[in-house]
Amino acid sequence: MRTILFSAPPARWPQYEVPLRAALAKAGIAARLVNATEHPERVDYIVYAPNGGLSDFTPFTGCRAVLSLWAGVEGIVGNPTLTQPLCRMVDAGLEEGMREWVAGHVLRHHLGMDAHIVNPTHDWAPIAPPLARDRKVAVLGLGALGQVAAGALVGLGFDVLGWSRTPRSLDGIACHHGDEGLVEVLTRAEIVVLLLPLTAQTENLIDTERLAWMPRGTVLINPGRGALIDDDALLAALASGRIGHATLDVFRTEPLPAEHPFWAHPKVTVTPHIASETRPESAARVIVENIRRVEADEPLLHLVDRARGY
């Protein structure tokens, strides 16, 4: 019988215990699921989320894989004590949640909905937006979440540009990569969606120089990682009008401190890291599938490349 340690903030245990046990039973895997142990050497798998109290993986000498509940692994991937295989979370719930959040906020800015929802001057201004096919939207990051978000925007009729560090080819999306590709995408897009992982190469990617490449009035939407954007550079770009609005779901410090200027800024929308929450039922199925794969000596899903950081 295998032992699975659930290492996450205590509030997560009652959310995940039943779905994990159900998924294990359905897969026919006999396992002890625990949220604490005095015998780390007997643990076969760790289900992990940050802030659960686990930072030293050295005692887990028998652990066969660490299975993250989060899509982002920047907080753990550089841990020198983590020598076991690490898998990040990619599941249908995450993908569907991100698709809906991105589509909703792109449509909000494309249609100019704020002017109609909040109209204190009672202006009657029947100015129609362009059709989606005439609006260029860029998605930076074409991994699992970027692909589903970009695909949804294509389905709505938008002219979608994609950018990734390495070459991609996706139906309906004009894909670009590398430094030259980033210039091409950012100089053309009217709405920019950030769905990149946070690595040494992507931290502060959206800085003063790259903000200046964007057409005046560009909308920036970030459900990826807070540190993709230089906050001070963004505030300056908002003040100059280079960026027309920023809708931000992720931040360098979370919760976003009460004194942060983003809260009161008239051109910033703050959402509390809700673009795509891990759903216990669907996440449990992914976790158990990876356990089944290890037991069957099959390749792991969503295995993290330590050199790339994701």
Rank of each mutant, 00 (worst) to 15 (best):
L194H: 01
L196P: 09
L196V: 02
L196K: 04
L196W: 01
P197N: 05
P197Q: 06
T199F: 10
T199D: 09
A200W: 10
A200H: 14
Q201K: 15
T202I: 10
T202M: 09
E203I: 14
E203K: 15
N204I: 07
N204K: 14
N204S: 14
L205H: 01
I206G: 07
I206T: 04
T208S: 14
T208A: 15
T208W: 08
E209F: 12
R210V: 10
L211D: 04
L211C: 06
A212V: 09
A212R: 12
M214L: 09
M214Q: 12
P215L: 09
R216M: 13
L220A: 08
I221T: 09
I221P: 11
G226H: 04
L228E: 02
L228F: 06
L228N: 00
L228M: 00
D230T: 07
D230E: 11
D230I: 05
A233F: 05
A233Y: 02
L235P: 01
A236C: 12
A237H: 03
L238K: 03
L238W: 00
A239C: 10
S240R: 09
S240G: 01
S240Y: 06
R242C: 12
R242Q: 15
H245G: 07
A246N: 04
A246K: 03
T247L: 12
F251G: 04
F251T: 00
T253Y: 10
E254Y: 04
P255M: 09
P255A: 06
P255Y: 03
L256N: 01
P257N: 02
P257T: 06
A258N: 11
A258L: 13
H260D: 09
P261M: 09
P261Y: 03
P261R: 04
W263T: 05
W263L: 10
A264T: 14
H265V: 11
P266Q: 00
V268K: 02
T269Y: 05
T269E: 08
P272S: 05
I274L: 14
A275L: 03
A275W: 07
S276Y: 13
S276G: 15
E277F: 15
T278Q: 02
T278N: 04
E281L: 13
E281K: 07
A283L: 03
A283N: 02
A284Y: 04
R285M: 13
V286N: 05
V286I: 13
